[in-house]
């Protein structure tokens, strides 16, 4: 117990922000409760009514109220998964705001940091408390939520988001935790750069938002793709659950042509296919098995960025304190 107890500057930081920490803890518990309850409830109802003649999702007024009830449970589950995915995606932005503003820049703005630095707490120790401690706590909390999200995806009924969807991919793997760590590092850097609460929050929030908006556009290129071509006009070469990066038609010489070559403004598709010697459609895609390599490569990149931002923040601190 004593080994775990916080001491010195760590205890001070936790004590100062106890209100925020309690709020975060309550929100965490509520989120976990929702992620447990809703999938179980929806799965249970879907199972109960699977054998009935009433369709589950299409309530047209001809079935009983139960249909409507199931429909809303199914809907609640899907909405929860969609919204929770987006919430997990945006979580790093909220963390960046907190670390940059109340945790670091406010102390620099109000001057309370000087008081800490004279109380046998070195500047580096002071910043470590304000970066490593939140990184550990927020990272662990996010990892728990991601674990719950993965479980809820598995436990609920019906359609789940595609594994590669922008709001699903970071909510199901280590990438989500890496973004939280990056947010903390960017927040520290922003706070030390401007040393004012609200501008630091603005800059940290914007920087984190830009990173989580840009990365999905690069994601597809982070691991080699698979190429496959079908040998008849209607055979789609990529299987189900694949993330298609590029598609088109390929002719007998192996040349890739645009997929809509024979679609635009034409009704006789077959004649067009024969005329252009098309042997079938092709697709360039990621298989579902590329999920882990993609996750790990992106995690590595984000962690490298984190290290850069953290190093810059500590350098800046050394200059400030010197």
């Amino acid at each position: 117990m004593n080994g775990l107890a916080l001491r010195g500057p760590d205890w001070v930081a936790v004590r100062v922000h106890r209100g925020t920490l309690w709020t975060a803890a309550v929100l965490l518990v509520l989120s976990v409760a929702l992620l447990v309850a809703v999938p179980l409830w929806a799965a249970d109802l879907a199972e109960k009514y699977a054998g009935s003649s009433c369709p589950i999702r299409l309530s047209n007024g001809s079935c009983t109220d139960n249909t409507w009830f199931i429909a809303s449970s199914d809907w609640a589950y899907r909405e929860l998964m969609a919204k929770a995915g987006v919430a997990l995606l945006l979580l790093p932005v909220a963390f960046a705001l907190f670390v940059a503003g109340p945790l670091i820049a406010r102390e620099l703005e109000s001057g309370t940091y000087r008081m800490s630095w004279t109380q046998s707490v070195s500047p580096a120790r002071w910043l470590t408390t304000r970066t490593v401690l939140p990184a550990l706590a927020l990272g662990a909390g996010t990892a728990a939520l991601i674990g719950m999200y993965r479980w809820a995806r598995w436990a609920g009924p019906g359609v789940r988001g595609n594994w590669y969807a922008d709001s699903t991919f970071p909510a199901t793997g280590p990438v989500g935790v890496a973004y939280v760590l990056l947010a903390v590092a960017l927040a520290a850097l922003a706070a030390l750069l401007v040393r004012r609460t609200l501008p630091a929050m603005g800059i940290a929030g914007a920087a984190t938002s830009i990173v989580i908006w840009v990365m999905p556009h690069l994601r597809g290129h982070l691991w080699p793709t698979t190429y496959a071509a079908g040998n008849s006009p209607r055979s789609w070469p990529a299987g189900p659950n694949t993330w298609v990066q590029e598609q088109g038609l390929v002719d007998s010489s192996g040349k890739r042509l645009p997929y809509d070559l024979c679609l635009k403004g034409m009704t006789d598709e077959n004649a067009c296919w024969t005329k252009n010697h098309i042997s079938g459609p092709y697709a360039v895609f990621h298989r579902a098995s590329d999920y882990w390599p993609l996750q790990l490569v992106e995690t590595g990149i984000v962690l490298a960025l984190t290290a850069l931002a953290a190093a810059a923040a500590f350098r800046l601190l050394r200059r400030t304190a010197a």
Binding site: S59, W68, S72
Partner: peptide
Amino acid sequence: SCGGGIYNHNLIDSVDPC
């Protein structure tokens, strides 16, 4: 047509197209 409005297949992702 359905219920009090119009049903459309593309609405299948929402709770009740009607």
